[in-house]
């Protein structure tokens, strides 16, 4: 089992390395969206400090959503997905591997860049730390839940827009607890409650979503 996850991971990472452009595009999208907010609401440092956590989180949501197309679409188009389903390994195993790879490629870079954006919004040191931790717990959930939407919309007209309609409402709890954690750190109320809620969502999503994705892929491949 672990061996298969390992093979899937290696394969996905090699593919991502050969398509570095795609990874960077998502990352720049994240930075650009976050940078638009001060231009939209004005440079008042107090206001920006208040908004910072939420803005970074909303941008992360949008960036994660943008990268969902990469998850299954090319495998679906070139027949790899059929071959994966035909392996003797239970689908949840390689699905977990693919989602993990997706997070490593499109979630982790966001986490690495987020503190820089946080500084631009004037977040305190502690808040920056909480921002990173909340993203660390939250972005895997974005990849997990997003995978359901990506699997359901394979090969559909306007799949990209449709994914956002399906997935964004489901992202809301992650947004609330993620941004709330940063807020809690800024206001001195503490972020533990938010972070532990995010953690429980992560565990729940990790257990349940691969099964839903497996069912969704079966439906889409028919």
């Amino acid at each position: 089992m672990l061996q298969i996850v390992n093979v899937v991971l290696r394969r996905e990472l090699i593919l991502a390395m050969r398509r570095r452009g795609d990874v960077l595009t998502v990352l720049f999208f994240f930075v650009i969206v976050a940078s638009l907010f001060p231009l939209g609401v004005g440079p008042d440092p107090k206001l920006l400090r208040l908004m910072g956590g939420g803005v970074v989180w909303v941008s992360a949501l949008l960036a994660a959503m943008l990268s969902l197309g990469r998850l299954f679409a090319s495998d679906y188009a070139d027949g790899t997905l059929e071959q994966l389903i035909l392996t003797p390994t239970p689908p949840v195993v390689w699905i977990t591997g693919k989602i993990l790879a997706h997070w490593l490629v499109s979630g982790v870079p966001l986490i690495l860049v987020a503190p820089i954006l946080g500084v631009q919004f004037g977040l305190s040191g502690e808040a920056l730390l909480v921002l990173v931790v909340s993203l660390l717990l939250g972005t895997p959930v974005l990849s997990l839940i997003g995978a359901i939407g990506a699997a359901l919309t394979l090969g559909l007209r306007g799949g990209g827009v449709l994914v956002s309609l399906l997935v964004l409402p489901l992202y809301i709890p992650v947004l609330i607890f993620g941004a709330g954690a940063v807020d809690g750190a800024m206001s001195g109320l503490g972020a533990e409650a938010h972070l532990s809620l995010l953690g429980s969502i992560l565990i729940l999503a990790f257990i349940l979503t691969p099964w839903a994705v497996s069912a969704a892929l079966r439906i889409s491949i028919e």
């Binding site: 394969r11 070139d78 059929e82 071959q83 035909l86 392996t87």
Partner: peptide, 29 residues
């Protein structure tokens, strides 16, 4: 005990011929 060869050849453009075959076999166990 079965193998399928479909319309789409399941060959990744970004991988070399060797890598394609190697990964295909490893994934199939």
């Amino acid at each position: 005990e079965m193998t399928y060869f479909g319309h789409a050849p399941a060959v990744k453009e970004d991988l070399t011929a060797t890598e394609n075959l190697d990964f295909a076999c490893r994934l199939a166990g």
